[in-house]
């Protein structure tokens, strides 16, 4: 049996000429004084140190009129109302589920903010409270939308639309939330034969494109039909493409994923994660994205 073996190599250095391209950005590290002018407002990632506005995280300074924020390169998910998230149920409590969404506190999904089977106008009885585990139990994956943000930063989710609900068969990929590009829609049916939910929280769900949805099920019906091999291959390829893009810090959205998928086609699925192949594919993707932008 052939075995692929690799030796450690020297890490590639980014050329100094390229690094100078970031000169226009205002990059700061913790403890850097941004301004000692008192006319500015203190935003996220900053604190006041003896009347001097000081950065508390490493990142780029963003200024909106009088408000100064520092946006870190990588952080946990900071949810905003309307964000699409993919999460995992960690706990079933009274009238609520706790959902792990890569946020700094577990999110809450209230029984009153889900669509139960039987349609919109169904009353939630005490019986529903007892059978909550029947709908969603610990370990289940769901897609949901952020309904509101509590004062301590915890998120309240809802699944009151047919597109949200329990996730069935598919693959979950975790990337940094800052790599997911904000777009009008985060649900995509890709032309290559699979669908993807790009959660704002960095959880990406890849699944076979569903057929006709059964309205009555209210998003709690999960198909246990075996997925054909062809679909599984497409999903595996997309997963490796996602990991390749994330490793090279390319923003994730439908176009970048599709371009990466297309440029990976000459290679075998398992080869995509080899560093040299990964670099080639990502380079081609970047080039195509730049050409498209013009």
């Amino acid at each position: 049996m052939a075995v692929d073996m690799r030796l450690p190599t020297v890490r590639k250095q980014v050329a100094d000429s390229l690094l100078s391209a970031t000169a226009g950005k205002h990059l700061v590290v913790p403890g850097d004084v941004i301004t000692s002018d008192t006319g500015f407002m203190r935003g996220h990632g900053t604190y006041m140190d003896e009347d001097k506005l000081t950065a508390s995280v490493a990142g780029e300074v963003e200024r909106v009129n009088k408000l100064i924020c520092v946006k870190p390169l990588k952080t946990r998910f900071n949810g905003e109302v309307g964000d699409v998230v993919v999460g995992r149920i960690t706990e079933v409590q009274q009238k609520r589920w706790k959902v792990e969404t890569n946020s700094r506190l577990d999110s809450v999904l209230l029984l009153s903010s889900v669509n139960l089977p039987g349609g919109e106008l169904r009353r939630r009885s005490a019986e529903d409270e007892l059978t909550m585990r029947h709908y969603l139990q610990e370990g289940d994956l769901i897609s949901a939308e952020v309904q509101s943000v509590f004062s301590d930063g915890a998120l309240s989710l809802h699944t009151r639309s047919l597109k949200y609900g329990k996730l069935g068969q598919g693959v979950l990929v975790q990337v940094s939330p800052s790599l997911v590009k904000r777009q009008k829609t985060h649900f995509h049916n890709l032309p290559c034969g699979a669908s993807v939910i790009l959660g704002n929280n960095g959880f990406v769900w890849l699944y076979p494109t569903p057929g006709q949805q059964d309205e009555e099920a209210g998003g709690y019906y999960t198909s246990m039909e075996p997925v054909p091999l062809a679909d599984r291959e497409v999903i595996s390829r997309l997963r490796n493409c996602l990991l390749a893009l994330a490793a090279h810090k390319v923003l994730l959205y439908d176009t970048s994923l599709l371009y990466c998928y297309e440029s990976s086609l000459p290679h075998q699925i398992k080869d995509i994660l080899k560093p040299e192949v990964m670099e080639e594919i990502v380079m081609e993707t970047r080039q195509r994205l730049m050409d498209q932008e013009g």
């Binding site: 980014v14 970031t22 990142g59 810090k249 923003l251």
Partner: peptide, 10 residues
Amino acid sequence: HLQEVSLLTR
């Protein structure tokens, strides 16, 4: 590190 990463994610 900051420069390298912000260069890639621009």
